[in-house]
Design a protein around this nucleic acid. Structure first.
Length: 487
RNA sequence: GGUCUCAUCGUCUAACGGUUAGGACACCAGGUUUUCAUCCUGGCAACUCGGGUUCGAUUCCCGAUGAGAUCACCA
């Protein structure tokens, strides 16, 4: 059994992401792109984007742009691609028809390709017959004796040379198959466009791709590809097969039908690229340590195809949310400030920059997504709506009578009013003193003060919040809450 | 149905013949003389089953079961 001994150790690593523009980019596609990108960046090689738009019927307008925007939004920058060109272009398969034609001609000349003489109906009859005989359908069993000269109006088929293959896959390990899976597949369709099966091999060779990283759906076709590599006298690239990412139900390959959001949706919802990438990378990969949170650079440094999981993994949105919070906390404040530009609540847009920045510093620890910003900060910029349910449904505060609430708020206002300095330390001291003075538990007093000054379900540390809010606003809100508590 | 692949807590995973089977998310309970969705501590929770090989199997082999992929003029 031939092994993949003609597989070479690549010197200049070149990987590609080769999607077909037939829909939105979702996490499954992102992972394939990410891993190819990581392999290229780790080896200081090139990452190439190639659009496989050979099926004009299924093509969706705008999806090529969406694909490119998604990669850019995730900072998976490519070195060569349809919009930026490169030394091996064009990078759109529909612009490369002449190239496929000339490679096809080589196969015709060497007797390894022939015109398909059958009609669709005839072909269907062969299939039906095979099914009736309980046998797998193989086109090569019907290979015509004297095929007509190929004139480009009928499909061009590969004349296969079936035999068993064993090959190595960087993720899956040793793989093998028998000759029965190898068949005379179509190289060029009757519309003149090449099939994926043909075009990707031609392009990978022309573009000097060293690592073919793709989804599990291609593993069954791999022996056919090997047969074509052999017929073309090509050396094999490194193959790496990624298992699928499953939807939440865990039973199906993740797709649009599972309500899978595309990447740009996640970005719009306040997820940051670092989190998305960390999450997707760790969905089926780990470095063998107990590290969970990785920076992009750490990923580039530590990634290895050999450690990619061989079985499919489910998409767990809660883990992504957690990771997003972790990654947000890792950002320095200048960086965070740029990223939240479009997430500020309306009332914050006209606020003083320095003040807004200090609000952001406080909020950073609590953000799980950037979209949480308004809920977490709007009371810094405008008077919050009083919502007494926050008090009456609070399990600590519910026990207090309205008189007690009023007394506590009044005492707090009086105490804070006497402060000479208005800063987090002095405020904390004052509040602590107030605990002794009123004989109140921290959980009650601080909850009450927090709610009365923010009317938000959650907020940053109390003393920091009040310090930033300022004496005037703090006191006016305490007084307002006090009045309302007695109504 | 044929072919290929996979199989550890609910989920993502570590382990590469000997471990109280580790970590993380989620969940639960405490803590941080300051609330909370941050942070800290603790708890719950897994080797699909049956045969081998071995002094010893989650780990190696075989089988069963389950799951996924694929059998297009789609990629």
């Amino acid at each position: 059994m031939p092994d993949s001994t003609n597989q070479i150790a690549p010197t200049n690593v070149r990987t590609r992401f080769a999607p077909s523009p037939t829909g939105l980019m979702h996490v499954g596609g992102v992972r394939t792109a990410l891993f190819a990108w990581l392999v290229a960046r780790q080896a200081k090689g090139q990452f190439i984007l190639r659009l496989e738009d050979t099926d004009k019927k299924r093509e969706v307008a705008g999806s090529a742009e969406h694909l490119m925007n998604s990669l850019k939004a995730l900072n998976l920058n490519y070195d060569e691609g349809p919009d930026i060109g490169g030394p091996f272009g064009p990078y759109r398969q529909s612009d490369r028809l002449d190239i496929y034609r000339s490679w096809a001609q080589r196969l015709i000349d060497s007797g390894r390709a022939y015109a398909d003489p059958y009609t669709a109906d005839e072909l269907q009859d062969f299939r039906n017959q095979a099914k009736a005989d309980k046998q797998a359908f193989l086109y090569r069993n019907h290979r015509p004796q004297n095929p007509p000269v190929w004139d480009g109006t009928t499909p061009l088929r590969f004349k296969s040379d079936p035999h068993a293959y064993a090959w190595h896959d960087a993720v899956m390990g040793s793989l093998s198959s028998g000759p029965e899976v190898i068949d005379d597949f179509i190289l060029i369709k009757s519309d003149g466009y090449p099939t994926y099966n043909f075009a990707h091999i031609v392009d990978d060779a022309e573009m000097k791709i060293t690592h073919v990283i793709r989804g599990q759906e291609f593993i069954a076709s791999q022996p056919n590809y090997l047969n074509l590599y052999d017929a073309l006298g090509l050396t094999y690239p490194v193959f790496a097969t990624m298992p699928h990412i499953m939807g939440e139900s865990g039973t199906k390959k993740l797709g649009k039908r599972d309500g899978a959001k595309d990447v740009l949706d996640y970005i719009h919802d306040g997820y940051i690229p670092e989190a998305l990438i960390n999450f997707i990378a760790s969905l089926g990969w780990n470095d063998g340590t107990e590290q969970e949170v990785f920076t992009i650079n750490e990923l580039v440094e530590k990634f290895s195809l050999a450690r990619v999981q061989r079985s499919g993994a489910r998409f767990d949105e809660q883990r992504l949310l957690w990771l997003n919070g972790q990654q947000i906390r890792l950002l320095n404040i200048d960086d965070l400030e740029k990223r939240v530009a479009n997430f500020w609540p309306e009332v914050a847009k006209s606020a003083d920059n320095a003040y807004r920045r200090r609000v952001l510093e406080l909020a950073q620890d609590r953000l799980k997504t950037l979209a949480d910003l308004p809920a977490l900060t709007s009371y810094f910029f405008s008077e919050p709506t009083v919502n007494r349910e926050l008090i009456t449904t609070n399990k600590q505060l519910a026990k207090l009578s309205s008189e007690e609430v009023s007394q506590l708020l009044g005492a707090t206002a009086d105490k804070l009013n006497t402060l000479a300095d208005w800063n987090p330390e002095s405020i904390q001291q004052a509040l602590n003193a107030l605990l002794d003075q009123t004989g109140t538990k921290p959980g009650i007093l601080f909850s009450l003060v927090r709610i009365a000054t923010t009317w938000a379900p959650f907020s940053p540390q109390l003393n920091d919040t009040l310090a930033l809010l300022g004496r005037e606003l703090t006191l006016s809100r305490l007084n307002l809450a006090n009045q309302q508590s007695l109504q």
